[in-house]
């Protein structure tokens, strides 16, 4: 793989505190196009805080998040105006929630859920919107005849796949995922991971995946950051970190995985 010249996302000294408590601090990393970074850590280690800061849902107290926009090159997303940032959130960015219900409109059919982002960026041709929605349902292995069903009629795994389709339909370049496989049983998890891996490779997506499941990052992530108490304690290539953990907490984490 050739090294691209500019990173897609550059994160510099991000710090977010909740009063005296640290959410996350001193986070630095670069994300290159086509690269997947995993963030692991226990509950309360600050990984979701970090993800929400990066995705613009929370305002960090300090730091810079530089995103390589299509139009103007590198731009600090924290200094962008709100319309600009929300536009990014609808076009170049995508956010996959842990709970599909947070990311879907439960009162709207599957086709409408997928079509919403298209309509949000100006699509006004019903036939084309529907065609794309069906195409995307097919890509996430949801049958065409379910296009008019509401997400409430779907299983948990299907809801999660629908959420992914809804997010990827506008061809984003950066996907934020918060525990995408949480709450799914193992066989459904495996299928979802397989699907995600295929889509990430096929579309050349960059992704930041927050999870506590080491198997997920082993499968999906190129690089790994381990967080503890708001700090990044170890970072490196996924296989390297998992096979030869250096930090005490990483060693604990790796050794805690149940072997079947």
């Amino acid at each position: 793989m050739s090294t691209p010249a500019t990173p897609l996302l550059q994160v510099r000294d991000i710090r977010k505190t909740y009063g005296a408590r640290i959410g996350c601090t001193d986070v630095n990393f670069d994300l290159y196009p086509g690269e997947v970074i995993g963030i692991v850590g226990e509950s309360g280690s600050g990984k979701s805080t970090l993800l929400n800061c990066l995705a613009g849902h929370l305002a960090p107290d300090e730091g810079e998040i530089l995103f390589d926009t299509r139009a103007d090159g590198l731009k600090d997303t924290l200094k962008m105006s709100e319309p600009e940032r929300r536009m990014l959130g609808r076009t170049d960015w995508a956010f996959v929630h842990q709970n599909a219900r947070d990311g879907l409109r439960m009162g709207v059919s599957a086709g409408g859920n997928v079509g919403e982002r298209l309509m949000a960026v100006g699509a006004r041709h019903y036939g084309n919107i529907r065609e794309q929605a069906i195409d995307w349902l097919d890509r996430v292995e949801i049958a065409e005849d379910r296009v008019d069903d509401r997400p409430g009629a779907f299983s948990g795994g299907m809801q999660q796949r629908l959420q992914i389709a809804r997010n990827l339909v506008t061809g984003p370049r950066l996907v934020f995922m918060d525990e995408p496989t949480g709450g799914l049983d193992v066989s459904v998890q495996a299928r979802l991971l397989d699907l995600l891996r295929g889509l990430v490779r096929e579309m050349g997506l960059s992704a930041i995946i927050v999870t506590h499941d080491l198997a997920v990052v082993r499968l999906l992530a190129d690089r790994l950051m381990v967080m503890k108490s708001g700090h990044v304690v170890e970072a490196g290539l996924t296989d390297q970190v998992l096979d030869d953990p250096q930090h005490g907490y990483t060693q604990l984490l790796v050794s805690s995985v149940l072997q079947v």
Binding site: R90, R105, V108, S109, E116, R117, M119, V121, R130
Partner: peptide, 11 residues
């Protein structure tokens, strides 16, 4: 941001 209004018509 009025994309949502069309979601209703789509439905």
């Amino acid at each position: 941001e009025y994309g949502l209004m069309h979601v209703k018509l789509y439905e």
